[in-house]
Design a protein around this nucleic acid. Structure first.
Lengths: 226, 226
DNA sequence: TCCCTCCATTCTGTCAACACTTTTGGGGAA
DNA sequence: TTCCCCAAAAGTGTTGACAGAATGGAGGGA
């Protein structure tokens, strides 16, 4: 009842995740259990379970008796994720528009006004998911998809030249929410994300490999941390 | 190349899952590591990892140093899942309608004709997800949500009196797909699932606890219950 | 020179034992 | 009787060691 009673598995889980987003273990890189165990000063058991958990979240892929590897996200993966986001976030904002109280709505608008200065864009999506009242949708968006987004953006810079448009589109969504027009809000959100998807698809036809793969080059020794 | 090279964790994973769907471990029941280890004739290590994997899929919930428990799905959980399904399966059928080849479309219609005899309803949803071309949507639907559906239906019988309607709605969806009307197919699918959601909501206001805690326990071991 | 085979190395899978935490149940005091 | 405290029991967290599989390279033969 005092502390959150964190277990080693949780600590290692967060630690490995930090290694991923920081790029210390690159996308597609090998995840070595013993190296991680040494690094975090624990045995291999907690590391194995943490890797298993990350595998469950799709951040690490593994086959029996093969090395575990960080998921290798390319543009096509991102397109798939954005297609999924388009549908789910549409439902998310639709539900939020219906169930949010007037007070929560005002608070949301105020928060968004305040956070306008810094460049945080994803926060609105997170807030809407939290207000949707659907824990499963919230978990899917916040605990799974946004992790992958952060992972991808950590490698290849965020989609360029869209922040200005995105901000305007965010305002439109908020207006529809305040007017309690759930269907309009859903439609706007879907269009909003669909635009990002199209940007990715343009990226796909323009340059099939936006990040030159330094990873496919087979087995180099010790391509991870020391 | 020859054998699938299954590991003990996979075996135990499937074994525990069978215990869940068979109801031998009831929803909300405790999951004892040592008892499972004895039952499957393995050590606690593989059991722990399998439980961790099931936890990652949302079938088992656990807090540090507390007993692990099977997720206790109630009607509200199902409503949340169906809201998520409505959005995702709408996108799923929309994508499938766009990307499926004519041959695949014909095969789908034929398969559906053939499977018309037996009462399998979910198969169409699975097939559509497989044909969507979006692996992440397919994984979400087939590997996560449908597991939970099966778990819920194993306890409380499938939503009654809807199979006849469902079949007609399935045919409408298939017709829209064959006409390559992606938006219509999406709309029909969303309405289709929305109807099931409304049935659940009626269940909620009619009888808040559709399954009284008469938890049929097919257990003969010392597994306790509070 | 190329390729096949075999072996050493490395890493993952599994196990039994130990340490820590929670729960349980009994005994004593108000 | 009721409540609180404490010790035993049960269960989870963690560890180190051992076994099996896959990778990488050396050596021999065509």
């Amino acid at each position: 009842m005092t502390g959150p009673q964190r277990t080693l598995v949780d600590t290692v889980f967060d630690g490995i995740f930090q290694l991923l987003v920081s790029g210390e273990i690159p996308l597609g890189g090998v995840v070595n259990e013993v190296a991680l165990a040494e690094r975090f000063k624990v045995s291999r058991g907690p590391v194995r379970e943490a890797v298993k958990a990350l595998q469950g979240r799709g951040l690490i892929v593994k086959e029996p008796y093969f090395k575990a590897r960080v998921v290798d996200l390319d543009v096509e993966d991102m397109i798939e994720i954005f297609q999924l986001r388009e549908s789910v976030e549409g439902m998310s904002v639709k539900l939020a528009t219906k169930v949010m109280s007037d007070e929560a709505m005002d608070a949301l608008l105020q928060d968004f006004e305040m956070a306008r200065g810094n460049g945080r864009v994803l926060d609105l999506h997170v807030r809407i998911a939290e207000e949707s009242g659907n824990r499963r949708i919230q978990s899917l968006l916040c605990d799974e998809l946004y992790y992958l987004l952060r992972l991808y953006r950590a490698r290849s810079g965020s989609t360029p030249g869209r922040h200005d448009n995105a901000s305007a589109e965010h305002w439109q969504i908020l207006r529809a929410m305040r007017l309690r027009d759930a269907d309009l809000a859903e439609s706007l959100m879907r269009t909003h994300i669909s635009r990002a998807t199209e940007a990715l698809q343009r990226l796909l036809v323009t340059d099939p490999s936006p990040v030159p793969p330094s990873r496919r080059d087979g087995r180099r020794r010790k391509e991870e941390e020391s």
